[in-house]
Design a binder for these strands. Structure first.
Lengths: 253, 253
DNA sequence: AAGAACCGTATTGTATGCGATTATTGAAGA
DNA sequence: TCTTCAATAATCGCATACAATACGGTTCTT
């Protein structure tokens, strides 16, 4: 699976500074950060996985310095764990941390709902409705597409508040929820019920802040019970390995 | 003064930055981060102030590498602004950002209040009451001590929820509020009314979640309604950082 | 004198190197 | 065979080196 290293940007030793007509001299540190972030969220890098600085740097075509910088930022956001002198791992939240994340997320999104109630522009309403229709369509074949869309619905709402900090926090909580569901969630239940999204839009539109908040609260609560409270009790290595042992005709002692 | 390239000499690889007796192999990157963080929160580094990597590194006795790492983390937390190719400044939030921060903070702390209502242990109650008494005492001479204590009250509450993420967010919002009040707040009005803290404790104790949340909401709301304009002066970075370097065990070169 | 092109300097962006710490392997001893 | 321990390999922490970019002042042009 390891592909030959492909530098992540125009890493060319630019012949002469002058001719750099290419778009953005965006710091590559940020590119590294974003690449790793996506990789973690999309679970290409699985929870708990070791993250050695130099192999990652090599793979991305940058030096360890930049990888380290990215790790630091990801650690603040709770996506990687940084252990002194022992390197970085993709975060592996405990069940308790998971509970915490969901609680905070509920608080944040309730705020989103209150903020938005009665303030949606027609354009925003339309966008949300369109989104929900997409969700419905995707829901039929129940692929990973469905999951992505459910998540984006919440991000869209946060964006519409116009509160940048609130958006950032919701995104952060959201990413961590992805991690958590990757660990403790059941395989592919689409996490959000589309009908609940519909109701929420309606309440927002009606300007009923209290009802919107309550709906959001209930909605996220039910995500937890749907996806989380059916723990695939694999906190233990044994559970993970059991099927493999079986298929190889080995008997765990 | 550019050094004429001197092939390794004066700065021999020191065995360790500090005297050998240190029992704590605490990464120095973290020390730098904490020093800068405190300096910003306590407004020794004023909002908008330029943060040159090398003078800071020199003052703290570390290389630019570590300073940069700290900047990255502080930027995620919104305490530092990082402009590509133009370095770092202490964040200077706009009024709109200020509004956003306060709104999020309100949402978070309401969550704290709801979480805590009816769940305070006797020990926790006692701690809070003791704290409020301290506030009252400090309030008489109305120094900076009074401000610090008011802030700590909210942090203490967040701690008591046992929700680490919630605590982190409250702390973050809190620090940013310090910045904001430094810019837009009036000089030294102690920001929290002690009586409101008292009422809040009472509601928590009574287990009245709704009332506690409402009180918290109102309390923070009333903090906001004290926003005014204020000028700023600038000092030399070196002087400002010296005490922080000292307290973190860093040695200026 | 106002503006544009120019150049030296201060700073930032990134890579590399070196000592320190941790993990791993393999051999000796029980 | 199971430990214990040492030597080695892998990795991290941090400083330094070098390249790229932005800033400020000067000179040249009109």
């Amino acid at each position: 699976m390891p592909h030959p290293a492909r530098p992540l940007a125009a890493n060319k030793p630019r012949p002469n500074g002058k001719s750099a007509e290419a778009g953005t001299p965006v710091p590559r540190a940020q590119a590294v950060y974003k690449a790793l972030r996506r990789a973690i969220i999309e679970q290409a890098l699985k929870p708990g996985m070791k993250l050695p600085e130099d192999s990652i740097g090599e793979q991305l075509g940058v030096s360890r310095t930049l990888v380290r910088e990215a790790f630091g930022r990801l650690a603040v956001e709770g996506l990687v764990e940084l252990k002194p002198n022992r390197g970085a791992n993709v975060a592996y939240p405990t069940l308790e941390e998971a509970r915490d994340v969901f609680e905070v997320r509920r608080g944040l999104e309730r705020l989103v709902a209150e903020n938005l109630a009665g303030r949606l522009t027609p354009a925003q309403s339309a966008e949300l409705e369109a989104h929900v229709r997409l969700e419905e369509k995707a829901h039929e074949q129940d692929g990973p597409e469905s999951i992505r869309l459910s998540g984006e619905f919440h991000i869209k709402l946060a964006e519409m508040t116009g509160n940048a900090l609130l958006l950032r926090y919701v995104q952060e909580a959201s990413s961590r929820c992805s991690l958590i569901l990757a660990i403790y969630g059941r395989p592919h239940s689409s996490e959000c019920a589309v009908s609940e999204h519909r109701q929420l839009i309606e309440a927002l539109h009606a300007g009923d802040a209290a009802r919107a908040a309550a709906l959001m609260d209930h909605h996220l609560q039910s995500v937890v019970t749907r996806a989380l409270l059916a723990p695939r009790g694999e906190r233990d290595i044994r559970d993970v390995l059991a099927p493999y042992a079986l298929s190889e005709g080995l008997t765990p002692s």
